[in-house]
Write a protein that binds this DNA or RNA. Structure first.
Lengths: 337, 337
DNA sequence: TTTTCTATTGACAGCGCTGGTACATTTGAT
DNA sequence: ATCAAATGTACCAGCGCTGTCAATAGAAAA
């Protein structure tokens, strides 16, 4: 039978309430006494019972992660989950994962979810992070939440990184290699990722003084298949691009597949780069030049931010984390014409 | 304020105890009354408070998934998680995910973990599923658990699939294409996956009447880098193999990388196949021939099995699920010499 | 030193549910 | 109609913790 709070109290010679104060980080316990109690906690190997805690404190100590349930287990989500779990480690909070199909009307189902799990806070991943009705409902229910890479500009808690700048940076890399005709496969409508990455692509071209050619932008939806289809379209152009920047790695893989089918060599005949830095970018040959998105940090920060906002309403509400551009073998100078 | 059990009792005109019986599936409530109570539960949108339930009933309604925390977010784990969550859906149970480094002495840390989360059941993923000391400690603590693809033959609850037969099947495919010199990159020592897949490889060769050549078996550790190194070794042999069967997809990708570096075409100069059916097997070009491991089903079944064993100790303790061999473009007949 | 005030600490009442006991009612088989 | 079994009610304790508020100790002021 594990130790209870009263065992700790008896061991330290104080009341259970004082132990409780130490447990919950209240500042009104004198340092010396606090130390003695902490020693007792350690000596008895005491860990508070989450159920009792939740019942008495009317809290669940649960943070729910609401994410899209893609058919292929996305490593983006996986990494996010790792970050979320990491943030919970060492806190009394636990993570509850909840995949929701983007197609579902989440705003309508959120009440049931909240009633069932009673999470203290939510973390929303795109596309849910961009679901206005959902966010409104959460505001009404008065449940704290944070979003990851949301494109909504409300005064909400959001973490992300400067995708637009990152996209520009990778396109600038292509420009610096000598590419002038650079294609882009944009992401799914409605995702901030689409807008930012497309924006960065245009920024870079503009700064390089390259005239904008709308025919070089294809509409993808972040899937491998759409990457293949878009590559087909771009490579069939009368003046095909010498490099293609896909808005994510899966679509970049699609480009590589189409190049493979056509017998085009990468990077000899075509340079390819992606975005996200998923594991596949390292596994594929040649290695894929991409922007490594700091998923773990994002997940971790998203949790820390909401939890902090619960304790301290004045906590900062927006956070940006650094990203990295990984240059690999899929990009090179274009072949001289 | 959400409804409480006494609200439901009042609404249905019964005692709270009877509602409690319905909630907990006790059989001593007449069908008609049960229906009335269930209607009230539905009408009031009542969901029992998990904390109160856990506290009073000395249960947490939590199933913990203990998995290895690989550096690269593995889609294997991701899919398992999806399956585990799926199994919890519609039950009062929730999943708690807990990554543990394989390097950690989990057997020593499990007590703290159990004290903190007090899970009603555990699901162990390799390599933890093969940690004898850990399993012993869990037996001592008397916590129900199930394992996924454990190689330990105790009378424990385990789910898996016939990896040996699957490996044999994919090697037989290579044989049927005409390959006679088939290399194998084995997995990490201590994993059942190593033993079974290597065993299947040997089974297939034996059945095909191909003499066993120990120099064609390389030692990998399931990582991409070890796949590259092993491929290098195999391809440097005086009589290099015409096909390589890697014990997982990441290592198969390593083989493809090494082939790429050497300018060998796949499948023209070398056929490659993997194991696991991770997303990369579809994204890479050419598509990778592999065994698709039913991760979701495994995760789902692992949870269902332990939970069932709690209710009914005589429940079946071993379950096998079907797998699929995906034939893709990375394998073809060997070039005529 | 005494008083006053504030920083600490403690006593106690539940949080919402389940388990148990004791007893009432209904059902169905004689 | 009669009785035992099946089904249901009433009631209470208590799971282990935290919130409220009163009590106390210690420090500052008089």
């Amino acid at each position: 039978m594990p130790a209870r709070i009263e065992d700790v109290a008896a061991h330290a010679g104080v009341s259970t309430k004082t132990v409780s104060r130490v447990l919950n980080g209240h500042t009104t316990v004198r340092a010396k006494l606090r130390a003695r109690i902490e020693a007792s906690i350690h000596a008895l190997n005491y860990v508070p019972n989450a159920s009792a805690r939740g019942l008495a404190g009317n809290r669940s100590y649960l943070v729910a992660l609401l994410y899209d349930n893609p058919m292929a287990g996305s490593s983006y989500t996986m990494e996010l989950i790792v970050g979320v779990l990491q943030a919970c480690k060492g806190t009394p909070y636990n993570a509850v994962l909840h995949p929701f199909d983007a197609a579902d009307d989440l705003a309508a189902r959120i009440d049931g979810f909240v009633a069932t799990h009673r999470p203290d806070a939510l973390v929303l991943v795109p596309p849910h992070a961009n679901n206005v009705k959902l966010l409104q409902r959460l505001d009404e229910l008065d449940i704290p939440y944070s979003t990851i890479s949301s494109r909504l500009h409300q005064s909400r808690i959001d973490v992300g990184f400067d995708e637009r700048r990152a996209a520009a940076e990778i396109v600038e890399h292509l420009v610096s290699l000598g590419h002038r005709r650079i294609g882009h496969i944009a992401g799914l409508q409605g995702h901030g990722a689409r807008t930012w990455r497309l924006g960065g692509y245009r920024d870079a071209l503009r700064r390089a003084g390259i005239a904008h050619d709308e025919s070089l932008v294809a509409d993808g939806d972040f899937t491998f298949a759409s990457g293949v289809a878009s590559a087909r379209m771009l490579l069939d152009l009368r003046h095909p691009p010498t490099a293609i920047f896909a808005a994510n790695d899966d679509m970049a893989c699609g480009v590589m597949r189409e190049a493979y089918e056509r017998g085009l060599s990468i990077p000899g005949d075509l340079s390819v780069c992606g975005f996200d830095g998923t594991p596949v970018s390292q596994l594929i040959s040649p290695g894929l030049t991409t922007v490594h998105q700091p998923c773990r940090e994002l997940g971790c920060l998203a949790v820390q931010s909401v939890l902090q906002s619960i304790r301290d309403a004045s906590a900062p509400r927006q956070a940006r984390v650094p990203y990295e551009v990984h240059l690999r073998a899929s990009t090179a100078a274009p072949r001289k014409p």
